[in-house]
Amino acid sequence: MDEEYDVIVLGTGLTECILSGIMSVNGKKVLHMDRNPYYGGESSSITPLEELYKRFQLLEGPPESMGRGRDWNVDLIPKFLMANGQLVKMLLYTEVTRYLDFKVVEGSFVYKGGKIYKVPSTETEALASNLMGMFEKRRFRKFLVFVANFDENDPKTFEGVDPQTTSMRDVYRKFDLGQDVIDFTGHALALYRTDDYLDQPCLETVNRIKLYSESLARYGKSPYLYPLYGLGELPQGFARLSAIYGGTYMLNKPVDDIIMENGKVVGVKSEGEVARCKQLICDPSYIPDRVRKAGQVIRIICILSHPIKNTNDANSCQIIIPQNQVNRKSDIYVCMISYAHNVAAQGKYIAIASTTVETTDPEKEVEPALELLEPIDQKFVAISDLYEPIDDGCESQVFCSCSYDATTHFETTCNDIKDIYKRMAGTAFDFENMKRKQNDVFGEAEQ
């Protein structure tokens, strides 16, 4: 370990593993360490099931009705991949897709007046949907046509809207959309967690709705994908990429100290040895004095023996409960997957309800979601602090990732990755940087 590296990475969460992969592909010498004996950090999948019970201090362990412990891979952080989103792009560019198998999530649902409705995925579904009345549908269709044709580089498509100054509230007004449709559009399509976006320039919202539609167009059922064997497969896929390009991995490796000289990182000390480096990437748990708390998320993992009611017996789905429907500031989400994804025993389902904490009784906040899941065989409640770095790391060369937020997709995580890359490399992130180099010394032969 007593060696000189360009970059040392602490923690094998998804953000850290993707950055480690990119740095290795770009010719950097990388050492990647984790104090845990497993990959994934906060974003790991726990197996066998006995391990999950232990982690949540349920000492009696799983009953026999849960089947074989080894058949379970339970995500600690519930997220899906947008089919046309940035993480899929990263997987394709790096060819990490060859280590993973994905399934399309069967449906996306939205909560309205105590019931759940399928988010329409085709024009026919939209016309048949009970989510809105006849005239509302016509106006909504006009709005969707506007979004589909919108091109930020072609003012002819703006229809009198200025993407940089017109607020989204004004765009909704222009198409005369009612409150329910606005809730549905902002939260189930643009996937905002709160209503803060309404008074911001509309460009980002329009682009988010386009991303949803384009992702949906790829597979038809929903815009989301999920990897077989759980999300823990993602960091491992990128760790393989890093290793192929010469990255060194050490799990179960305690970090005793991060060594600084004149305010700059110069190395990491572990078990009496020092590895030197020019730059350091880590998750917040490794540098508690360089991060601040930015809120909390509650996630309740529920094991069920039945599909969720009114989802047409889907073996995977997402449910969004827009905040307006339950008098909150932030949406509540449910991600459900099952034995069909090799993450649970035969006939079992895993539904994870999550939201940003707003009160001193977080469990009560998630109740509307839990009511949709009854009866629940077993619950595991996790309340996590969200951390963000206190500075950009440019001076110390210590670059810290943000905690995983309450969103049900990876777009915010990818933004964090691109942002850290830019601060480390001094140049904007470009997907081309992730391409495997042809015929290089570490390149794998085609399968």
Results as ranks from 00 to 15, higher is better:
residue 247 G to V: 04
residue 202 C to H: 13
residue 143 F to R: 05
residue 94 T to G: 04
residue 408 T to P: 07
residue 233 E to N: 15
residue 271 E to S: 03
residue 430 D to S: 11
residue 418 K to S: 04
residue 38 Y to G: 04
residue 205 T to V: 15
residue 381 V to E: 02
residue 317 C to H: 04
residue 190 A to K: 15
residue 163 P to D: 14
residue 19 L to P: 02
residue 276 R to N: 14
residue 94 T to R: 06
residue 383 I to G: 03
residue 148 A to S: 12
residue 446 E to D: 07
residue 424 M to N: 15
residue 173 R to A: 03
residue 432 E to M: 15
residue 28 K to G: 09
residue 370 L to P: 01
residue 220 G to V: 07
residue 157 T to N: 00
residue 430 D to N: 05
residue 322 P to I: 12
residue 16 E to F: 02
residue 287 I to V: 13
residue 116 I to T: 09
residue 278 K to M: 06
residue 438 Q to R: 09
residue 227 P to L: 05
residue 250 M to I: 10
residue 413 T to R: 02
residue 143 F to V: 03
residue 146 F to M: 03
residue 369 A to G: 10
residue 114 G to S: 07
residue 275 A to D: 00
residue 288 P to R: 12
residue 203 L to M: 02
residue 273 E to H: 03
residue 385 D to S: 14
residue 58 L to N: 06
residue 111 Y to T: 01
residue 183 D to G: 05
residue 260 M to V: 09
residue 46 I to S: 12
residue 338 S to Y: 00
residue 266 V to R: 03
residue 206 V to M: 15
residue 379 K to S: 04
residue 89 K to V: 05
residue 160 G to M: 01
residue 110 V to R: 08
residue 261 E to I: 12
residue 30 V to E: 00
residue 165 T to Y: 14
residue 327 N to G: 02
residue 353 A to V: 11
residue 237 G to Y: 04
residue 94 T to I: 02
residue 9 V to A: 05
residue 188 A to D: 00
residue 15 T to M: 12
residue 216 L to V: 06
residue 17 C to I: 06
residue 310 N to R: 00
residue 292 R to P: 05
residue 191 L to I: 00
residue 30 V to A: 03
residue 315 N to W: 12
residue 413 T to P: 02
residue 120 P to A: 05
residue 392 D to H: 14
residue 212 Y to L: 15
residue 18 I to C: 12
residue 252 N to F: 15
residue 134 M to R: 06
residue 310 N to M: 04
residue 289 D to S: 01
residue 315 N to T: 09
residue 281 I to S: 03
residue 156 K to Q: 13
residue 2 D to I: 02
residue 236 Q to L: 01
residue 26 N to Y: 12
residue 342 N to Y: 12
residue 76 L to I: 14
residue 8 I to K: 01
residue 189 L to I: 13
residue 348 K to N: 11
residue 327 N to M: 12
residue 282 C to P: 15
residue 277 C to S: 07
residue 299 R to H: 05
residue 57 Q to Y: 06
residue 317 C to Q: 05
residue 149 N to K: 00
residue 66 M to V: 08
residue 337 I to D: 10
residue 218 R to W: 08
residue 441 V to I: 08
residue 95 E to V: 05
residue 401 S to V: 07
residue 65 S to L: 11
residue 23 M to R: 02
residue 230 G to F: 00
residue 149 N to G: 14
residue 429 F to C: 08
residue 239 A to E: 01
residue 365 E to A: 03
residue 31 L to A: 09
residue 105 V to D: 02
residue 325 Q to N: 12
residue 171 V to S: 14
residue 307 P to W: 09
residue 386 L to F: 06
residue 217 A to F: 13
residue 388 E to L: 14
residue 352 I to R: 06
residue 111 Y to M: 01
residue 63 P to Q: 14
residue 123 E to R: 02
residue 211 L to P: 15
residue 382 A to G: 08
residue 87 L to Q: 02
residue 163 P to Q: 14
residue 240 R to N: 02
residue 123 E to V: 13
residue 251 L to P: 02
residue 432 E to K: 08
residue 431 F to S: 08
residue 433 N to S: 11
residue 213 S to V: 15
residue 404 Y to C: 10
residue 241 L to G: 06
residue 346 Q to P: 09
residue 248 T to A: 06
residue 295 G to V: 07
residue 369 A to D: 00
residue 335 C to R: 01
residue 328 R to M: 04
residue 185 T to D: 15
residue 388 E to Y: 06
residue 177 L to M: 00
residue 373 L to P: 07
